[in-house]
């Protein structure tokens, strides 16, 4: 007997009906989080989902599935049924899997439900570092080639993109990149003096900056940040950054491509309401994230632009394993 038939029979016996959009969700939804428990993707997803559940009238069971920089979770969700019962709670990096040689799938296999928020990169330094601003750091790098230790989180991570951006705008910088597992451990190392400078996400470093345990050098954005109004923008030191900014990592909820439109709409509505919930907005604002809450064509467009810009930036900095061209990712502006 086929699996579906038994399922239908039992479900019928229990008085429920199978997968029709009116009754969606008829069972619990699995939300697969790409990163480990306690990370920022995890925290964001666990705080928005309960609000979305209220609107949805169903349960989303969140599970962390880690490994291979999130590729395991992505492949798992991409390979599951497109019935709206398996969702991916992801961050920005899958858009770089192809060019970084980490996998052959990215968000093009998915329909974005909601791109929740984006982070702002900021360059922070150890308090003992012999410079106090971005210009001072550049001078130090020029005078002490190879001596500046800059934190990184592996190829394709936020720090690697920021470093690539700096290399492109300022010319190749002679620094030593020390790899860490994530910006949390790297910022810990920064405070202990194991690294001098770290391009981090504002949210991860804001408490440290407020407490004076690390010093901010420059914010990588085009507009002054309300949370840290005194920190200069990197564009005020070099106009060249305007080409690439604003840029930042983001968090989003995705369903496999082929999920019925009405289910996508229902999920979209739920997560849009969740993202707009005052508690969530306040929480994100406190951590220095910029709310986005976009979906549909707008989200697809955002993803495509993000991928083009970042993939080519990394390609030009010589950090990619394969050219974006091989995957049909056009150079921005072409």
């Amino acid at each position: 007997m086929s699996r579906k038939l038994i399922g239908a029979l039992v479900a019928f016996g229990l008085g429920a009906t199978v997968a029709s959009a009116q009754d969606y969700p008829a069972k619990e939804i699995q939300g697969i989080i790409q990163w480990g428990a306690g990370g920022s993707t995890d925290t964001v997803m666990r705080s928005v989902t309960p609000h979305a559940e209220e609107v949805l009238g169903g349960t989303v069971v969140l599970q962390n599935m880690t490994g291979a920089v999130g590729a395991i979770a992505l492949n798992h969700v991409a390979g599951s049924d497109a019935d709206g019962y398996t969702l991916l709670m992801g961050a920005e990096n899958p858009l770089l899997y192809k060019v970084m040689g980490l996998g052959d799938k990215d968000y093009s296999e998915f329909t974005p439900i909601n791109i929740l928020a984006r982070g702002t990169p900021i360059l922070v330094a150890n308090n003992e570092a012999p410079f106090d601003d971005y210009a001072g750091m550049m001078e130090y790098i020029a005078n002490n080639p190879g001596e500046l230790r800059i934190g990184s989180t592996g190829p394709g991570g936020v720090p690697s993109v920021i470093t690539a951006m700096m290399d492109t705008v300022e010319g190749k910088l002679d620094v030593t990149a020390v790899p860490y597992d994530g910006d949390g451990p790297a910022l810990t190392a920064l405070q202990g003096g194991a690294i001098d400078v770290m391009p981090a996400v504002l949210g991860a470093s804001i408490e440290g900056i407020r407490a004076g345990s690390m010093k901010p050098l420059a914010i990588f954005d085009v507009a002054q940040n309300a949370k840290l109004p005194d920190v200069p923008l990197v564009t005020s030191f070099n106009e060249g950054y305007n080409t690439y900014l604003p840029w930042g990592p983001f968090f989003g909820v995705f369903a496999p491509k082929g999920t019925p439109d009405d289910i996508v709409a229902k999920l979209g509505e739920a997560y849009a309401a969740g993202a707009a919930h005052p508690d969530f907005v306040e929480l994100m604002d406190n951590r220095g994230f910029t709310m986005m809450g976009i979906s549909g064509a707008e989200a697809e467009d955002f993803l495509a632009k993000w991928q083009q810009g970042t993939a080519w930036l990394l390609q030009d900095a010589g950090l990619t394993k394969a050219s974006p061209e091989d995957f049909g990712i056009a150079r921005p502006g072409e």
Binding site: R3, I6, G7, V10, A11, L14, G15, A16, V18, P25, A26, K27, E28, Q30, G58, T59, V61, Q63, Y85
Partner: peptide, 21 residues
């Protein structure tokens, strides 16, 4: 602990949802 053990031929999720409802 909501560990999503492989459901296989049993419609577990529908079953749990039924009791939840």
């Amino acid at each position: 602990f909501t560990v999503l053990l492989p459901a296989g031929i049993l419609p577990e999720a529908e079953f749990i949802q039924f009791f939840r409802n």
